[in-house]
């Protein structure tokens, strides 16, 4: 009898299970952002509502390298953010956009974005996920529209598969596209330069680099604060107004006169790859950048940063050593990482 009851019960369970919907579980491989030792925690968790997964990252990677995201299919994100240049535009003051146009600001390197609260030189973008909307739609960049982009993505079966892998409902929509892009760009990190290796005890500075580091700590670190080499603040560093663009920087966003000519302090990581320098790429070399802080700061500007009122005293020898040190911030691991290369 007992056996019969057991069999019946088993039968019941079997039959019952037929009525429970069996969806194949949506498999996601979760990834974690590296917080290098000794680094501060990011100000916000950029992946709080966008869990970082291998599947999302790979979709973002394909999108990042896909020139069809622009109006004439000539300009991908990677067109202006080149891996070999730490995801800046190599050797360009301005990047090129649709119909032979120029951007109005120098493309910044993309790395350690998880530590940035505001994006763009003027901090106008408040979240990594919405940043691509600017280059997508700007007439002098990718010059397209969201409906146009989504139409192209929906027509491509490769994307159908990738969106399905990355998101439970597999929908190809702007939110998923932007979240996937954020997973890719937010994962780009730079923490393997010679400087980092020295800090970890895996390498050592030359005499000149060590002297340059001392000068850096004394003269530069209050704004370009290690280990990120920026404090992510907005400051006026005494460059004259660019008369062509009349670009007032942060003031464009806040409408506050006190923010006139303030721009975000850029990270100095990978600085040897991101020339020319400053928000409009007007300074061609590191030596000339140091010369600006030594000799050319316009001290008459009312919004000039307090720390620059007397310019910065750096001797010729210190300048040479400082440049040696700045070159140690180049991260070859980042620029060669196969994970960030164009997918096949």
């Amino acid at each position: 009898m007992k056996i019969k009851i057991t069999i019946s019960l088993l039968l019941i369970v079997l039959m019952a299970s037929a009525f429970i919907p069996h969806q194949p579980p949506h498999k996601l491989t979760y990834l974690k952002l590296v917080i290098p030792k000794g680094w501060p925690q990011p100000p916000t968790n950029i992946f709080a509502t966008n869990p970082l997964t291998e599947e999302g990252f790979q979709l973002g990677r394909k999108l990042f390298y896909d020139a069809r995201l622009s109006r004439d299919s000539n300009f991908s994100c990677a067109g202006c953010h080149q891996q070999f240049a730490a995801f800046a535009t190599y050797d360009h003051d301005f990047s090129h956009g649709f119909n032979n146009s120029f951007t109005t600001r120098n493309a910044p390197g993309l790395f350690n974005i998880a530590w940035q609260k505001e994006l763009h030189w003027d901090g106008g973008v408040n979240h990594i996920e919405v940043q691509p909307l600017s280059p997508f739609t700007a007439a002098n960049e990718m010059a397209t529209t969201l409906p146009e982009i989504l139409k192209k993505l929906k027509a491509d079966t490769a994307y159908a598969r990738l969106f399905k892998n990355a998101f439970a409902d597999g929908m190809i929509n702007s939110q998923h596209m932007l979240k996937a892009l954020a997973q890719f760009t937010g994962s780009i990190q730079s923490y393997n330069s010679k400087y980092d290796k020295v800090k970890r005890g895996e390498d050592s500075f030359t005499v000149s680099e060590a002297l340059g580091y001392k000068t850096f700590m004394a003269s530069c670190n209050s704004c370009h604060r290690e280990p990120l080499f920026t404090d992510n603040s907005f400051r006026n560093n005494g460059l004259p107004l660019n008369k062509k663009w009349m670009d007032k920087g942060r003031m464009t966003i806040t409408g506050n006169l006190a923010d006139s000519l303030k721009f975000k302090v850029p990270s100095l990581r990978n600085i040897s790859l991101t020339f020319p320098y400053m928000h409009d790429g007007r300074v061609v070399s590191l030596g000339k950048v140091i010369d600006h802080y030594r000799n050319s700061i316009d001290t008459a500007q009312p919004t000039l940063d307090m720390l620059l009122k007397k310019r910065i005293a750096i001797s010729d020898q210190e300048k040479v050593d400082l440049i040696s040190f700045l070159l140690t911030l180049k991260d070859d691991v980042l620029t060669h990482d196969p994970r960030f290369k164009q997918p096949n």
Partner: peptide
């Protein structure tokens, strides 16, 4: 919602 990234 203005500072929370991509919405749908």
């Amino acid at each position: 919602k203005n500072v929370s990234g991509a919405q749908t």
